[in-house]
Amino acid sequence: MFTGPEIEAVFAELGITHVVWIPDTAIGPWEASLAGSSRLRLIRVCREGEAWPLAAGLHLGGQIPLVVMQTTGLFESGDALRNVLFDMKLPIYSLIGVRNWLAPQSRDSAKTFAEPILNAWGLDRQWIVEPADKPKLAEHFCRCRLAGVPGITLLAEGAP
């Protein structure tokens, strides 16, 4: 959906200072642009559960982090998300890739459970399903930041 240079430009224009991530096959091609950016830093974590408290520390220290992972990582890191977004009440924004969302025949549980779990968390979210949706990322990020609430952009992905 986004090229690496495109997404680096979007993130940088939003003022994002750090991208904390574990990539998947759709997001991974952004690596060279993010790692090579002079406007933001790419922070690689070993496990998605590290990403949320690391982003919390960045936020508390005055930076503007973005968490990037796949839905599988969202599921894995549920307790860390709960703690940071609900106990600590920090407005951390994230971009979550939804594997197989664009493969209608797929019964991948990584897509099946994405929305029900986000419904349970009650998190503000919006989708990017096709190229025309790309501007929604910046719009939603700014809306959440202005409101001081966490938010998620779900990125519809094809089969890995």
Partner: peptide, 23 residues
């Protein structure tokens, strides 16, 4: 001092790392 409680177990080191990178 940040007394990270309630916490997520294993979260203190990444939280501190984020603070260290920010400050």
């Amino acid at each position: 001092d940040v007394h990270y409680n309630p916490s997520t177990m294993s979260g203190a080191i990444p939280l501190a790392l984020g603070l260290a990178l920010a400050q």
